[in-house]
Computed example of a mutant assay.
Amino acid sequence: MSDILDKPAIGTVPWAIKGELILNCNCTVFCPCVVSLGKHAPTEGYCQAWAGVRIDTGHYGDDELSGLNVGLLLEIPGLMARGNWKAAAFIDDRADDAAYEGLVNIFSGAARGTTGLFGMLVSEFLGAERAPVSYENEGDTRRLMVGKKIQGEVVPVRGADPEREIVVTNTEYWMGPDITVATATKGRVRAFGRVWDFDGRSAEICQIDWKGPGR
């Protein structure tokens, strides 16, 4: 009983994550949400997306999160800023119970801070489950594999200088200020009743530095 009483309330635990995020959605060209901050509709009028997070260093309270990966499924019916999102999380099955709980709190928005907007915008959290989540870098290519549920691969889009990626910088996007424009060479989801194929569609790469409960 004393352990329960001593356990800090969700939303008060200090946490931090540094690493990389990739995202692939159903937009036919680069996602308008990055520069419009959700005030412009996705190119198809609604958003369906998968994302992967590689945690290079991280913690939730005293619990270590470094080296773990997370997969996400997102569904937004219209303008991002209007909410009514649906979301689900796939937590690295290498996470112990404490790390699993911490990651669920972070990616559901309950832990507040950078991801706290999930708590405001997600009206239906479809669930969280343990899964083998693999996030691999091979040269410029990033791959996310969540068993057979998410199979994703994204590559940066090159600009006039073929040695340089196209990067949208100094944004106020919640994920991070600098977003690398990318495209998906594979983007397949078979989870929670969703069957999506977004090969060749919009993708993003972002270096993340998230924390909570304050910003």
Rank of each mutant, 00 (worst) to 15 (best):
M1Q: 07
D3A: 14
K7D: 09
A9S: 12
G11M: 06
T12P: 07
W15Q: 06
A16Y: 03
K18M: 10
K18L: 01
G19T: 10
G19R: 03
G19S: 06
I22Q: 00
L23A: 10
N26C: 04
C31Y: 10
C31E: 07
C33S: 11
C33E: 04
P42D: 14
T43R: 11
G45T: 04
C47W: 11
A49M: 10
G52R: 03
D56Y: 07
T57K: 12
T57P: 03
H59T: 11
G61M: 09
D62A: 12
D63E: 14
D63R: 09
D63M: 06
L65C: 07
S66R: 09
N69R: 12
L73T: 02
L73H: 07
G83M: 06
N84Y: 12
D93G: 05
D93W: 01
A95G: 00
D96A: 05
Y100V: 01
Y100H: 12
V104Y: 03
I106Q: 09
F107S: 05
T115A: 10
F118W: 06
G119P: 05
E124N: 13
F125V: 08
R130K: 15
Y135C: 08
G139I: 02
D140N: 13
K149C: 03
I150A: 05
G152A: 15
V154C: 14
V155H: 02
P156D: 13
R158P: 04
P162D: 12
V167D: 08
T169W: 08
N170A: 15
M175Y: 07
P177W: 11
D178F: 13
I179R: 04
V181A: 13
T183H: 11
T185R: 12
K186S: 03
G187D: 11
G187Q: 09
G187L: 07
V189D: 00
V189E: 00
A191S: 15
F192D: 01
W196S: 05
F198I: 06
R201F: 14
E204L: 15
I205T: 01
Q207F: 08
K211D: 02
P213T: 02
